[in-house]
């Protein structure tokens, strides 16, 4: 990688598509880190709380890396502590908008959201945005443990059956729909693929994610998936008319204000040192 600091020459629309993708990765990892941190206390095992806390630190670290890329490559500055964006400006996956009701929500975020983001990141390795490729190795190494944690818990809850499995299936259904929306309508990222910034489009990545999730479950139909000629798809397809490409969402919502206040340290602003 001899041109490690080179900025690819891109037209305005392609460059904007890349920028919004990096913002979406950063925002989603910020919210994912928040929820992992939230479950440092209250998980079903002390060991799981320590793992959640560790994953929170890693997600916050990844957010920082993406924010550095935004500043260096796109002259966009996001400082989580001084971020004044409204909730409706965030480009995070909707499943992360509110406090998690139970451990099932955390496992669903762990296995769906946290598996979707590395798929997207990996697609940019070897592409023209060298700054992503440069940080991807360490990030993806850490993500391997996130996935091992997620897979371990899904397997456990599937085997146990009963109420824990039902709760997991309910959480998975919501996480899968919201994360499928994050990948966007077919061909929305065609310009990025044509420009060779990524080696696979988001539609194929979504398919890969759904197939992997289906393989983990005894009855994928219970989480809203159906088997077709191309693999597993949503039984109720998403309607894309209202999809917002800047936010990669179908709805107009955003993270709860209380969550953003905690991430920004709003209650303790008087103690800020800078």
């Amino acid at each position: 990688m001899s041109e490690a600091t080179a900025k690819p020459e891109l037209d305005g629309a392609t460059r904007l598509g890349l920028q919004t993708t990096v913002i979406a990765l950063s925002d989603t990892k910020l919210l994912l880190g928040y929820h992992y941190g939230e479950w440092t206390f209250g998980p079903p095992a002390i060991e799981a709380g320590i793992a959640a806390c560790s994953m929170a630190q890693e997600e916050f670290g990844h957010t920082r890396l993406f924010n550095r890329i935004l500043k260096r490559e796109f002259e966009v500055e996001i400082d989580p502590l001084n971020d004044t964006r409204a909730p409706q400006a965030f480009a995070s996956i909707a499943f992360l908008d509110s406090a998690f009701e139970s451990w099932a929500d955390l496992v669903a975020a762990n296995v769906v959201v946290d598996q979707a983001l590395p798929l997207i990141i990996r697609a940019y390795i070897g592409g023209g945005l060298y700054s992503i490729a440069r940080v991807a190795d360490k990030m993806l190494l850490e993500e391997r443990f996130h996935y091992a944690h997620a897979e371990g818990w899904v397997r456990l809850m599937e085997e146990r059956g009963g109420a824990p499995r039902d709760a997991l299936h309910d959480s998975l259904s919501r996480a899968i729909r919201d994360t499928s929306a994050f990948f966007g309508p077919p061909a929305h990222d065609a310009a990025l693929v044509t420009a060779k910034l990524k080696n696979i489009d988001d539609d194929a990545l979504r398919q890969r994610l759904l197939d992997r999730l289906a393989n983990l479950l005894a009855e994928p139909e219970t989480v809203g998936l159906t088997s077709g000629s191309q693999g597993w798809t949503l039984a109720e397809p998403l309607e894309w008319e209202d999809w917002d490409p800047a936010r990669r969402r179908l709805d107009g919502g955003g993270p709860d204000a209380a969550i953003l206040d905690e991430l920004r340290g709003t209650k303790n602003v008087a103690f800020k040192t800078a």
């Binding site: 002390i46 060991e47 443990f145 091992a148």
Partner: peptide
């Protein structure tokens, strides 16, 4: 030491707890 329901989660917990 640690507690885990199976070896796959034990591997994750070991790495996260004793890192």
């Amino acid at each position: 030491t640690l507690n885990a329901p199976h070896i796959d989660l034990a591997r994750v917990y070991a790495w996260k707890i004793y890192d």
